[in-house]
């Protein structure tokens, strides 16, 4: 195990109404086996002991699946390693003397609540507008009634792996939420269960997405590049098809 010394430049903002600014901290003797969030824990313990307010950041499962953590490290959402969330990024990716600039996910649709913590409830509202199959509990057919080819289930699973962290929006030069929205639309469009509502779903979810203040997709692929779950922009292509089909034929 080796240790490194770092300079951190972290965005501090008291609440959504106040202006924020960068603060600089030095942190010595960081074990390279630490995760990025553990490094922030160490910083916060240090700040607490100095009587300063710790840095607020979102996190929960710390195993890369809940999607609650996420910040932009040196310009890249979830940091320099591919296909990991911030909690799975380890300090061995950095070396002594590195300066890390840590910023919250920035997007018009994600207001900053404090420091690195943002409000991503717009994602919830996109799902609420149609990201589900409308079945009530009970009264459903046996699980094996509809055969679903293994490849289709796998494709649906690829899309369903989205953890809703928001890195796609944070990285998109336009702040678009197409990758997130398309992942859910794709999952349910691929599976026969989602078929009866597919048009309504595509229209409603895109409408909500636009209303929530996300930008327009211009096919930059930045979302795909930072997605910790490697969700493909093929899903965006599928959403485009679904949307066009729906708008020209629905109603």
């Amino acid at each position: 195990m080796s240790t490194i010394d770092l300079t951190l430049q972290i965005w501090r903002q008291k609440n959504s109404d106040s202006l924020g600014n960068f603060e600089t901290y030095t942190l010595n003797g960081i074990s390279t086996d630490m995760s990025f969030l553990e490094m922030l824990d160490v910083l916060n313990e240090q700040l607490t002991k100095e009587g300063k307010e710790p840095v607020a950041f979102d996190h929960d499962c710390r195993e890369g699946i809940c999607g609650q953590c996420g910040s932009v490290v040196n310009g890249v959402a979830h940091g320099p390693e591919k296909e990991v969330t911030l909690c799975q990024l380890h300090m061995r990716n950095f070396k002594t003397g590195d300066k890390l600039v840590i910023e919250p996910f920035r997007s018009r649709a994600f207001p900053i609540k404090r420091d690195l913590l943002v409000d991503r409830s717009a994602f919830d509202r996109i799902i609420q507008s149609g990201g589900y199959v409308s079945v009530n509990t009970g009264g459903v057919p046996d699980g094996n009634t509809i055969p679903i080819p293994s490849q289709v289930a796998e494709l649906a699973m690829d899309a369903a792996a989205c953890i809703g962290c928001g890195a796609c929006v944070a990285s998109c030069p336009n702040g678009a939420a197409m990758l997130f929205t398309s992942a859910k639309v794709s999952q349910l469009a691929l599976l026969p269960q989602g078929d009866s509502e597919r048009k309504k779903r595509a229209l409603a979810m895109v409408e909500t997405m636009d209303k929530e203040g996300f930008g327009n997709c211009t096919n930059h692929k930045a979302c795909e590049a930072v997605c910790p779950k490697a969700i493909s922009i093929r899903n965006i292509a599928r959403l485009n098809r679904e949307y066009a089909k729906a708008i020209f034929t629905e109603g």
């Binding site: 199959v133 459903v140 055969p147 293994s150 289930a153 369903a160």
Partner: peptide, 19 residues
């Protein structure tokens, strides 16, 4: 299981399409 399948949970499938 029936409920979750109906909701569109992408459970692993056999090549024949069964769960």
């Amino acid at each position: 299981i029936d409920q979750c399948v109906a909701q569109g949970v992408p459970f692993a499938r056999e090549y024949g399409g069964t769960l």
